[in-house]
């Protein structure tokens, strides 16, 4: 369980997150949307423990973020360049397992499995920086998921993927470890629509927390939060006016 209570955070005087109280059950799957600068990424960094709240508190299974095993929450940044460090694709995936002290034979088997699941086998000897942007995003996810975190926080992790690859991406995060809790930040309403819970942030606050359809039928709320509805909704809304 992740619990945030009256969390506030500012970047040198500029308020990024304010009065955020929210809970996520242990296997919850939630999408987070909001305009640029609405506080989504800050919220994600706070939960991961990479930022410390100015006010309020965050507990992961009852413990402050600084006291949990860092491997418990896997984090994928929007720009994969921010997290790829391995010399080759397979070494990138093995990196976390090596650090965790996994036995070599077991590790090789695990890396092979993940490469296959993510469609990266043919690139296993490639340096990550030679991959395309979309392949790097797949690799960043693979390198985090191989560690089987209890939670996945994904900050616009699929912005360089085509729609077919986006479906594969969602399929992977939902099915590789079905009990993993997921917090998925996205600008793509179509991606958000497959999550049972939608959270909208606006100017640092939680603006909406509920189901997908009911929010997207409210076009005043959409405009206020600066969110683009799926085309289907946009067309229906315009026709209804």
């Amino acid at each position: 369980m992740i619990s945030l209570k009256k969390v506030k955070y500012s970047y040198s005087g500029r308020l990024a997150v304010e009065d955020v109280s929210i809970h996520f059950a242990s296997d919850e799957r939630a999408a987070v949307m909001g305009a640029n600068g609405s506080g989504k990424s800050t919220l994600a960094l706070l939960i991961k423990g990479l930022l410390t709240p100015d006010e309020g508190n965050i507990l992961i299974d009852g413990l402050p973020t600084g006291e949990i095993n860092p491997g418990k929450i896997g984090f994928v940044f929007q720009n994969p360049e921010n997290q790829l460090v391995g010399a080759t694709v397979e070494r990138e995936i093995a990196f976390g397992l090596e650090n965790a002290g996994m036995e070599r034979r077991k590790m090789i088997k695990r890396v092979d499995e993940i490469l296959e699941q993510f469609g990266l086998e043919r690139y296993r000897k490639h340096p990550p920086h030679k991959l395309s942007g979309g392949q790097k995003q797949m690799l960043a996810l693979a390198a985090v998921m191989v560690l089987q975190p209890q939670w996945l926080i994904l900050d616009e992790p699929s912005s360089l993927l085509d729609s077919a690859a986006k479906s594969d991406f969602l399929h992977l995060i939902f099915n590789i470890h079905p009990k993993t809790g997921i917090i998925f930040i996205t600008q793509d309403a179509l991606e958000a629509s497959v999550f049972p819970r939608l959270i909208i942030m606006n100017q640092g606050r939680i603006f909406y927390d509920g189901g997908f359809d009911s929010f997207f039928k409210e076009h005043d709320a959409l405009n206020q939060a600066g969110i683009e509805p799926p085309v289907r909704f946009a067309l229906e809304q315009r026709l209804a006016v």
Binding site: A35, L160, Q187
Partner: peptide, 13 residues
Amino acid sequence: LDEPTAGLDARGK
């Protein structure tokens, strides 16, 4: 332009 809208919100687009 290589993926200029990646990560941009509705207004940015």
